[in-house]
Design a protein around this nucleic acid. Structure first.
Lengths: 359, 359
DNA sequence: TCAGCGACTGTGACCGTTGACACTGCACCG
DNA sequence: CGGTGCAGTGTCAACGGTCACAGTCGCTGA
């Protein structure tokens, strides 16, 4: 037996015929234009429902020039941050009647292909670029695209964007550690950005600014690079820090992922957190709560939401897309991984019994 | 100054004119059909490049009936599993020349809207349903869609699907704990599936089967329901287990997320893992490694990849989509959270000094 | 009473691409 | 030398909507 005939799906004309009106009227009705009488509207809607009609975006976009779709360019899909950002984006786009087209571009090969072919071109009304480190050529290529761009979680001069103020946030985080009495505060930054384009330097700058503000000398030994996801270099970095003449009492990790691994390493070598070492992360990773990690929490979902709204606006007013910015706040979420600085033990040659704790 | 004119993008006809050929020839060239002479091909390709031409999928899909797009229905976007599955899907779809349209349907409202409007209809060549618990009405509605369906990480009778054998995997996991000498093995299952549609019962069944196989009596006190993501019920469940006359020496958690929270709770109450309690998870969550959690690892990425390939095949041969299945293996990844069962302490009334350990 | 207006609906061209078909040469065969 | 086949190319009618414009009709105001 041959399978049942696959319905090709009804067309506007089918609905029109069934409702006894012209295709135009059906079109008007379904788009919610007001110039349709209530009775007609009712009849059309019923006919549409009976045929379980769905509009063909291909056809309508052909004539309107709008696709009803938004393309999203991301460096991967399995990181916590992008998941959260997309999770915020999806319902917001949905509410605006936009579908979400995802281009996940990870490898060099995919990258070359994406920027060569520009598959998003003419197939979406706007392109959202999320945490995607672009070369100058790539940026230029996106400009060629002739469609509105919105940058998410990255700041591009003169472009529409939604992001957080990394400098200020890192500064605030560092100040928090200072307020806990820490004076030796290390900073761990990822050696590779692994395709991500957050303003890495920005966070480090914030850290430095806060230290300077407090009148504390920069000590380059306290700033260490570690591989972001894997690799032994984290252990090495911890070893270096713990073997300094004056080791840190707190570590500010540029990302929560680093902080998690750091917690594991410290547990392994029996350095109690936060008694001997306070750890502060950055990101607001979903796992920060179960890990009891203090962190500077980015509003990842809200970034996605705001980006979707901005995209919507920019699509309807393409002229405005050059100068729109949304800066969202980062919240310090103090948890169990940070605590007051330990009272320093007397050190040989210090000359005093117990060094006084500075106010 | 008015901004520069936004290029609308060249059309096939523009390219044709520039290359001095007909639109058909351009179309043929760009699609790589062989009936074009090398010289013409070269000329057309150059013209296309010069105009940085990109085909309009709207127009071509209007006539071919193919959209070159695949819709993916997911219950959320910020879970580890879906991120990984999508991460596997994206490049595979890409390689097949398909774009990925994501419908994230989480709330009841979104759900109602999605199944009422069926926005995917006629706007994609296939629908991938990933870990999405469907009501019978919803399933029927999807059938109405008249487009190939592929179920991912869920098993639907008689439908194309990619999934793992949960029963067998859970059975194997339980056997592993038995082999470590555990006889009292608890099982924690999520109270709500939170929209996820893995075969929850299946895993529990596997657990039961393994116990039966080993000739161990089922003890309903050892099977407890806990909230999946949050909530105090996990603590309560642990309390129950620890206060049994004969408490378990191992816990099999139905998901890694539960296992993580379990580890935190046990650390909080000073039950050493794995010395006093072995913990085995299920999922292969990205965080399992840093947490040193033993787990039954699902190949999430590969599920996505396989789904993409299946989608591709099913699109090109719609008749075949009813009976295609791909079953992927689950790997036991033993780590530090599981260890040999502790030697039981003599219990009052036992009559023996040290109870012998069974072989 | 009738022009004029507004609310509603129909008509037909057109969006950009594909595919069936027709056409043109040229090589080959009988 | 004419017919045949084939490679390469052009023509033209779809595909399924939308939009500008042109009715139609009943009502209002002069």
């Amino acid at each position: 037996m041959a399978g049942e005939v696959v319905e090709k799906g009804a067309t506007l004309a089918d609905v029109a015929q069934r409702a006894g009106v012209s295709p135009s009227t059906v079109s008007r009705t379904l788009r919610g234009l007001s110039t349709v009488s209530p009775e007609t509207r009712a009849r059309v809607e019923e006919a549409a429902r009976e045929l379980s009609f769905a509009i063909s975006r291909s056809a309508s976009s052909l004539v309107t020039g709008r696709t009803g779709r938004v393309a999203v360019l991301v460096p991967n899909l399995d990181s916590w941050f992008l998941g959260a950002a997309l999770a915020g984006m999806a319902p917001a786009l949905n509410a605006a009647g936009l579908d979400m087209l995802i281009y996940s571009v990870t490898t060099a090969e995919q990258r070359a292909q994406f920027f060569d072919r520009l598959p998003a071109r003419r197939n979406a009304d706007a392109l959202l670029v999320v945490s995607f480190a672009l070369s100058p050529e790539e940026r230029a290529r996106l400009d060629d695209l002739g469609m509105p761009l919105v940058f998410v979680s990255q700041h591009e001069q003169g472009r529409a964007g939604v992001y957080v103020d990394d400098v200020e946030a890192a500064q605030r985080g560092t100040r928090y550690l200072l307020n806990l009495g820490h004076r030796r505060i290390a900073y761990l930054e990822p050696a590779d950005a692994s395709g991500f384009a957050w303003s890495s330097r920005a966070r480090l700058d914030g850290y430095r600014t806060a230290l300077a503000e407090a009148g504390i000398d920069q000590d380059d030994d306290l700033v260490r690079q570690v591989a972001h996801w894997q690799g032994p270099s984290l252990e090495a970095a911890v070893g270096r820090l713990l073997s300094l003449a004056e080791p840190p009492t707190a570590i500010f990790a540029e990302t929560d992922d680093i902080a998690f691994r750091l917690l594991t390493v410290l547990r392994g070598v029996n350095v109690p957190v936060p008694q001997r070492m306070s750890i502060l992360g950055f990101d607001g990773h979903a796992m920060a709560e179960p890990w009891d990690l203090s962190t500077m929490a980015q509003p990842a979902r809200r970034l996605g939401e705001a980006a979707a709204e901005l995209a919507h606006r920019v699509i309807h007013d393409p002229e405005a897309h050059r100068e729109r910015h949304v800066v969202l706040p980062v919240e310090l979420v103090p948890r169990g991984s940070t605590g007051p600085a330990p009272i320093p033990r007397p050190r040989p040659g210090d000359g005093e019994g117990v060094r006084e704790r500075r106010a």
